[in-house]
Nucleic acid binder design. Structure first.
Lengths: 212, 212
DNA sequence: CAAAATAAAGTAATTACTCACTTTCTTATG
DNA sequence: CATAAGAAAGTGAGTAATTACTTTATTTTG
């Protein structure tokens, strides 16, 4: 009778395309799901592939996590560092970085989960190394900007720069955790400027006559 | 020849004892392992029980997680709040809380993993509710102390108390994450006072003649 | 057509939980 | 006070479900 085979017309794509689509799918899925509970079946389904086909594009799951970590690291570093470089004054650069970081997270709520999840894993997986390295670079950038701010006489020279770098990252963490508790990711962007203002109060030079 | 049955002399303990021993074993194990990878077999082994026996004391794994969350919440709240109540001056109380919290984490490095892990889970498990409630109480306590500090003229009245509460929890988070990156949990207690000093600089009233 | 991409079914390993049975503890009673 | 009986705690061997990864055969495409 009717057709024995409605040929289903699959669309084939290159491994490269599938790889980046898969990475983005993972980031997307992490917005709603604990990364450690993500199965290859669920990921493949999101990409629109059979589970088996996934392993034609990634040799194994670890390698997929590595690609995801690399993507996150690249995106985060690029976006955050590039806005920092648009500002002459170190304190303005720090603020811009802070807001850019929160904005990035607000658009990709799965990212804190991903990074924290990797850090919590035991051992020294490639993904974990990438995350750790990214955070170390980030921290160094903050310290450099703080030192620059001191030179510019916009940050008090008595500041404990290492502590200030930890507190900077902590401020972001605090916002993220608060968002996880409240469940509303979008309130992050509203709260971010208030948090940064308070943070910067801890080291701001208070000139009597500030010039714009 | 020798005995057909060395009777093995098991020691039986009450369900209550086993429950608390199990909870502590979980907290202990989380110091070295991602909570989401903890199996009932591993836990039972740590307690010194067969895997099946675990289910004589907990109806299921979720219930175990609930008990763990309750234990953590109780311990943390009790320890942190009790040191706060030993101080008249709100800023001193905040500092004591901060250091007590970090000390607690340093002695139980699995606890941040546990709490963050629960928060990241989807749904509304009992354990997640407990963690969320605990953090909400904590936050409220910080806000109350900040307000008290304003009354006592030890904290500047222009402070954004909500932001300060977020930054307070963020400072702890930042320390913890820094510890996870570095891998050394004990450096936490050294770094903690420096972080708190910087944090408190963001709202400290600066009297010209401070009296001890 | 040949190579790459995909589906679909299969496999071995892991895991939470169950079950049938044994060992220890508790307690009431002669 | 000794002891038998029942309750509680424990074991060890399952089981069904899940999961990362494989294999085989089919479809698309340059």
């Amino acid at each position: 009778m009717s057709a024995n085979k409605p040929p289903a017309k699959r669309t084939y794509q290159s491994t490269e395309q599938r790889q980046s689509a898969t990475v983005e799918a993972v980031v997307q899925l992490c917005a709603e799901q604990d990364p450690s509970t993500l199965t290859t079946a669920r990921i493949a389904d999101e990409v629109g592939l059979s589970q088996g086909a996934l392993f034609k594009h990634f040799p194994n799951k670890n390698s997929l996590w590595e690609s995801v970590a690399a993507w996150v690291s690249e995106q985060l570093t690029q976006r955050v560092f590039s806005v920092a470089d648009q500002h002459e004054q170190a304190d303005k650069a720090l603020e811009a970085m802070f807001l850019a970081h929160i904005g990035f997270i607000a658009r990709h709520p799965g990212i804190p989960r991903l990074m924290l999840g990797e850090l919590q894993k035991p051992g020294n997986s490639a993904a974990k190394r990438i995350v750790r390295q990214t955070l170390a670079n980030y921290r160094q950038k903050v310290i450099s900007l703080l030192n620059l701010g001191i030179q510019q006489h916009r940050i008090t020279s008595t500041i404990d720069t290492e502590a200030a770098a930890v507190l900077y990252l902590g401020a972001i963490q605090g916002l993220v955790v608060q968002g996880m508790i409240g469940g509303d990711i979008h309130s992050l962007e509203q709260a971010a400027p208030r948090i940064f203002r308070l943070y910067s109060a801890s080291f701001q030079e208070v000139p009597d006559a500030p010039q714009t």
